[in-house]
Design a protein around this nucleic acid. Structure first.
Lengths: 403, 403
DNA sequence: ATTCTTCATTAAGTGAGTAAAGTAAGTTAG
DNA sequence: CTAACTTACTTTACTCACTTAATGAAGAAT
C-alpha cells in the first residue's frame, strides 16, 4: 500500500520540479522557473536557496534586462556531487565516477578474484573498485551520492535482489544488502540494459521522450522499456526478456534451453556459429572477425538478411505492444551495419500495425565505451532527479540543513 | 511538465488512500484506518467526515470491544453515486448504469441511427442511451459521476481522441469533446479492452494485483496491460495491438493488410474460415456453430491445436516482455474450451523464459454479459478511486463543501 | 466503583504553500 | 536627468493539512 502523504512530499515534488528545470533548461532565472512551474516566486525562492545551500545549484550571470530588473540566472553545479556506476562482467567489474551531468571523471577496471558465481567475490571487487575510483577522482567520499550496479539477468530493483542470472550463475542473491553493508553508501541495482535505458532517459536521445524502448544487440538481445517517463520493470523486475521471445517457426535451439528464440538467430554467438557452418574452416573465429569479413564475403549477406528481417519483425511486435515514440537500437551488434539494418528497417516498416505507422522513430546509436558505467550511475542520479511518487531513497534531503 | 504540488494534493492522496481502504477492507474503524495508512487518528477523522458529508461512506455497526471503547465501523455506500459505461458496437451502443461497486442497476441497448462511421450519429445514440439509462435507473442526474465510453481501436485516452478504428472507420475523432458538449457530464474514452482490464483491476481477479495482462479472444485478439497498478497505454494510447504481433513464419493474410498476424490464425473469423476450407459445405457458418461442432467433429481438433499453440507462444512472449504476475484470458473465444486451452497451456509453460517460470498464473475467466459496460463505467469509477498522480478530473472534490 | 484500554474528538502547533506589499535594479519617457 | 514604469526578488502575514497532546466516550477488567 502506498504511503500517506504529508507536507514533506509537497516540498519533495516541487524541489524535484525546480531542480529538473534548472538541470534541463540550463541557466534560468527564478522568475522564469515560477512561470514554468506555476509555483509562486516565494516558493521558488525558498527552494532554490535550499538547492544552493546544498551546492547543487549556483548563481551565474545576469540576464539582459527586458525592461526591468535583470534576472539572476541559476545553473546546475555539475561537480557538486558524484555518482558511481559499476557493471559486473564475467571476470571483472568496470566502473566510473560521474558528475551530475553523467560525465565520467574517473574510470577503473577491477578483476574479480575467485569465481564470480560467488557473490562475495563480486562484492569484494566492487569495494575495491569504489576505493580506487574515489582515490583516482580525488573527491571526498561524502560527495558520492551512491553506487549503481548493473547486472545481466533478472534483477528485482525494488527489492535489490538478483533473481536469476545464468550469466553469473546467480539465483536470488540479495546483492544490494550485501554491497550496502560492505560499502557504507547507498546502493542501487538493476538489469544492465535497464541502466542503459535510464542513461538515455536522463542524458541521451530519450531525454524528453516519455515512451521509448532501447534494444541492445550483442552477446544477447536486451530490452529496456521507458513508459510514461519511468522505467518499466514488471513484477519482480522480470520484464524485458526480449531475446527469448519467439517470432518465427524455427526450431533453432537457444542457450536458454528453448527453441526458436530471437537470440538463437541474431545474437553474436549465433551469427558466428551460423557463419562457420556456412563457410567451414574459413569462417570467423569471433564476432570481431565476423564484422570485418562482411565487406568481402558476399556469402554472409543472406545470414544478416535473415537476422535483420527477424529483428525487424520482433521490433514491430514491440511497437505493436508498447507503442513507443522512439526505438533506440544499440549494442556491439549494430556494427554489422546496413547488411543487417536495411532488411531490419524494411521488415519493421512493413510489419508495424497500420494505426501505429509513423508514430515512432528508429534511432541506431552506437554506445560509447563508458555508456554502461554511466548507465549504472544513472540509477543513482535518477533518484536525485526523479519526481518522488512513493517512498524513495533520500539521498540528500534529510531534515538537518546544510549551513 | 508535471504540475506543482500543493496542500490539496496531499489531501487528495490521503483521501484516496482512506477511501480505497474503506472500499476494499469492508467495514473498518477509523482507528484501524489510521494504523493501516500511518495517518493520525485526527486526519482520518477529518477525511472520513468529509467522505460521509458526500454520502460516499456511512457508519455501520459497532465492532465488538477488544478491551476498550468499541469501534464504529465505516463502510462504502455503494449507491451514493453512479457511473455510466457504454460500449460502441457496429450498429448499436450498449450501456449500463453501475453503482460504486460496479454492479449494474440498469442496462440499455440503443441503435445507432445512420452510419456509425459518422461520429455524430454515435454521439446521438450515446445521448439517447444516457437519457434512457438515467430514467430506467430512476436516479437523479447529478448523482451520475460521468460516462466512460469503450471503443475498439487505437484510443488516446488522455487526449480523448480515437486515433484509428478500422472497425468504425474513424480517424482522429475527438470523441470525448464531442460527447462532453452533448451530454454535460464528464466523459472518458478508452480502448474497449483497456476498460475491461480496468474492471478487472477494480472489481475482478486483478483487484490486488499490481502487474497483470488481460487477453480477450473473439472477433479479434485484444490486450490490456496493467503495470504498477495503472493501465499501460503507451504513447498516444497505441499500446496493446497484440492481435497484430507475429509469432511464426506463416504468410496467412490478416484483415489489417499484413501477413502472419496472430489474429489471422486465432480470431473467430479466421477459425471459422479455416474450418470451412477443412470441412467444405458441412463447415460452420459462424463462430457459434463452430463451438457447437467441437465435441462431434474430431477433424476440428488440429485446427484448435494449432491456434492454441500459437496463442500459447504469443502469451509466452507477453510474459517475457511484461513479466506480469497474472494473465487473464477471456472473451467469447475461450468457449472453445480445452481443445484450445490445453495446447495453449502446454506451449505457454514450455516457451516462457526460465527465469520467469512459476512467477505468473494463468486464469481463464468468462466475461459476464455486462462486463463490457461495467468496464467502461470503471473508467469513471477509477478516477474516483485512483490515487492522484498529476492532474486528474475532479469528479467530486471541488472546493465548495456539501452541507 | 475504580482503573484500564481503546476509540474518537478537540485544541494547539508546525511547515509548506499562497497573496500582498516592499525593495532592488534596470529601461523608457518627458 | 529625474520621474515613471517594468521586471526580479524578498519580506510579512495568512491559510490549510498535517502533527502532537490532551480530553471525552464507552466498554472491559479488577
Amino acid at each position: 500500500m502506498q504511503d500517506a502523504a504529508d507536507r514533506q512530499l509537497i516540498r519533495a515534488i516541487n524541489r524535484a520540479l525546480v531542480f529538473q528545470l534548472i538541470r534541463r533548461e540550463g541557466p534560468i532565472s527564478r522568475a522564469e522557473i515560477a512561470r514554468a512551474t506555476g509555483l509562486t516566486q516565494v516558493t521558488v525562492g525558498t527552494i532554490t536557496s535550499e538547492l544552493m545551500a546544498h551546492g547543487l545549484v549556483g548563481e551565474g550571470d545576469q540576464a539582459k534586462s527586458t525592461g526591468g530588473r535583470p534576472a539572476t540566472l541559476l545553473h546546475l553545479v555539475p561537480q557538486s556531487y558524484f555518482a558511481i556506476g559499476a557493471k559486473v562482467m564475467e571476470s571483472h567489474v568496470v566502473g566510473a565516477v560521474t558528475d551530475l551531468e553523467g560525465d565520467a571523471v574517473a574510470e577503473v577496471d577491477v578483476a574479480i578474484e575467485g569465481l564470480s558465481s560467488n557473490p562475495n567475490n563480486v562484492v569484494d571487487a566492487i569495494a575495491r573498485l569504489v576505493d580506487q575510483l574515489v582515490a583516482r577522482a580525488g573527491i571526498p567520499r561524502n560527495k558520492v551520492l551512491g553506487i549503481g550496479i548493473g547486472l545481466a539477468g533478472v534483477v528485482d530493483a525494488r527489492a535489490g535482489i538478483c533473481r536469476y542470472s545464468p550469466f553469473l550463475g546467480w539465483h536470488d542473491v540479495h546483492i544490494r544488502d550485501m554491497a550496502s553493508r560492505e560499502l557504507g553508501i547507498p546502493v542501487f541495482v538493476d538489469n544492465d540494459v535497464n541502466t542503459l535505458a535510464l542513461a538515455e532517459r536522463w542524458f541521451g536521445v530519450g531525454h524528453d521522450v516519455a515512451d521509448f524502448v532501447l534494444v541492445t544487440l550483442g552477446r544477447g538481445v536486451g530490452l529496456g522499456i521507458v513508459a510514461d517517463g519511468r522505467l518499466y520493470r514488471g513484477a519482480r523486475g522480470g520484464a524485458g526478456e526480449f531475446g527469448h521471445t519467439v517470432v518465427d517457426g524455427s526450431d533453432r535451439p537457444c542457450a536458454c534451453g528453448n527453441f526458436g528464440c530471437l537470440e538463437a538467430t541474431v545474437s553474436e554467438p549465433a551469427l558466428v556459429a551460423a557463419a562457420r557452418t556456412l563457410m567451414g574452416t574459413s569462417g570467423p573465429g569471433d564476432a570481431e572477425e565476423l564484422y570485418r569479413m562482411i565487406p568481402e564475403s558476399a556469402s554472409l549477406r543472406p545470414l544478416f538478411r535473415v537476422a535483420g528481417k527477424m529483428l525487424g519483425r520482433s521490433l514491430a511486435n514491440l511497437v505493436n505492444l508498447f507503442a513507443p515514440t522512439l526505438l533506440i537500437l544499440s549494442g556491439e551488434g549494430i556494427r554489422a551495419g546496413d547488411v543487417l539494418l536495411d532488411p531490419l528497417r524494411e521488415e519493421l516498416e512493413a510489419r508495424v500495425f497500420d494505426g501505429l505507422r509513423g508514430t515512432f522513430q528508429l534511432v541506431v546509436e552506437p554506445l560509447p565505451d563508458a555508456a554502461w558505467a554511466r548507465g549504472a550511475a544513472s540509477l543513482v542520479l535518477g533518484e536525485l532527479f526523479e519526481l518522488p511518487t512513493n517512498v524513495q531513497a533520500d539521498l540528500l534531503w534529510s531534515k538537518e540543513a546544510v549551513s
